[in-house]
Design a protein around this nucleic acid. Structure first.
Lengths: 256, 256
DNA sequence: CGTACGTTTGAGGGATATCAAATGTGGTGG
DNA sequence: CCACCACATTTGATATCCCTCAAACGTACG
């Protein structure tokens, strides 16, 4: 457990800011249990009680289970549902006209996937599992067809969208950093989510490179450099954080 | 008028993709006129007719007029309203802990501002006018309090959010390009919006640099280089497109 | 055991940053 | 209307970061 990393805030797509409540954990509460909803009341930031979650869990139509390299959805797929990651890790990406992969996000427990496709009823990226994963499926399109949506559900929807928006913003900010700082941020973020100083990355060096828009060799070299400086121990995908304060410093502060 | 640039799609924050209808123009229709709504029926992508616009215009509480360097909103401001640009140009930005400005978007006619703040009721960037601007104000927070929102208005809201999301995505993709390609994309985008081969940039070189995450000198040099290659004529903020096909090529295709 | 693939390391080149200075340009006050 | 100042833009020289091509190295998997 890392005390100083864990700020008690939920991250979206690895890079979300600002949320103060364990928002993701809320949705992760098993739909057929009834008690753990108390965490969640703050979602709508009103006293709206558990009806919100009941609404949601009642519309969580089914679950999806994916093996590594299986696709959750593909670019240009019709938008039908939102997904919330229950367990596992996934990446989303687009292809350039030249066929290069541009990774647009990583998703772990509690993250919401697919909100961006809502506007024009098409997803604009593909999502594939990096490890065995299970997800909640929320039939969003169906919700929209209802003549009048419960206001509290509306608020949740909007919150989901807004969260994905902020995740995108954060990702943009990461990309502006130097590679070393970006990687430090990435490691800190994952460690934060898993509340562990010792993590196993779900994604490859190439995936990280494609997220940051740099060459995979550069990612390797920066990992090596962070290790030589004593901040990390790196062995393939196994990472151990050795000097947390220095790593935070290298990340340029996790302030954004 | 540039034929080949004008694809008839609306851009959001300069970089939005995908929208096929003149979405912005819809909202720009003067609220007290009654006819020019026909363009707009496609917004909700159903045959929902003009009730949508009536809803919207009925809630467009008031207008905001800003002189250059006046602020529309500030980071951490409470979220109350969405804004739609009627005329002018604005930029949004955040400050790094070191006080550097990170430009998060430019906004022109028809663009929507502020959707990202919806989730946690706070705006996460400041927005300032680059030139004399006027905006529609949509009291969004108030809309949310209504016990049941018209489904068609819900759809519009979601579309607005989704559009801002796609704009963010597009911006990320731009940032991954080389500076030359990014600048070419920027010019093409503005020219596209204004349907003119001859444009006056509303933003400074520094603003562009802060958007792309590069040094302002680099932006200058790339402008110069594009001019030397005969693609553009550059005089301060006055830009003339001389070789459209080549410029599109330099942008890496406007495919994303 | 061997192959396939992801990772790591090396050398050289290109793109961009940084520091510095020159050049306009618009605005302000005389 | 002109002189001057403040500021944005442009250009130059050098340093740094990152890319590209290449090869070596492990590690997992058949």
């Amino acid at each position: 457990m890392i005390k100083s990393i864990s700020t008690g805030r939920t991250q979206q797509g690895y890079f979300s800011p600002v949320e103060k409540q364990m928002f993701g954990a809320a949705l992760l509460a098993d739909p057929d249990t009834s008690s753990p909803f108390s965490d969640v009341l703050s979602i709508a930031e009103s006293g709206c009680s558990s009806s919100l979650l009941q609404q949601l869990t009642s519309v969580t139509k089914r679950f999806r289970h994916l093996k590594p390299e299986q696709y959750l959805l593909r670019q240009q797929d019709q938008f039908d549902s939102l997904f919330v990651v229950k367990k596992g890790a996934l990446k989303s990406y687009r292809l350039t006209p030249e066929g290069e992969e541009i990774v647009t996000g990583f998703y772990m427990e509690g993250d919401v996937i697919g909100a961006g496709g809502l506007g024009n009823h098409k997803h604009f990226y593909s999502v594939v599992a990096l490890e065995p994963s299970s997800l909640y499926e929320i039939p969003f399109a169906k919700l929209l067809q209802q003549s009048a949506m419960e206001p509290i559900v509306q608020q949740l929807m909007l919150k989901l969208l807004s969260q994905e928006m902020q995740a995108d913003q954060s990702l943009r900010l990461i990309q502006l950093k130097q590679v070393k700082a970006a990687i430090a941020s990435l490691i800190l973020n994952i460690a934060n989510r898993l509340t562990a100083t010792q993590i196993t990355l779900p994604m490859s060096r190439v995936d990280i490179a494609n997220l940051l828009g740099v060459a995979s060799e550069t990612v390797c070299r920066e990992f090596t450099r962070l290790q030589k400086q004593g901040l990390l121990s790196v062995n393939r995908k196994h990472i151990v954080i050795n000097d947390l304060p220095q790593l935070q410093l290298a990340a340029g502060g996790d302030c954004y």
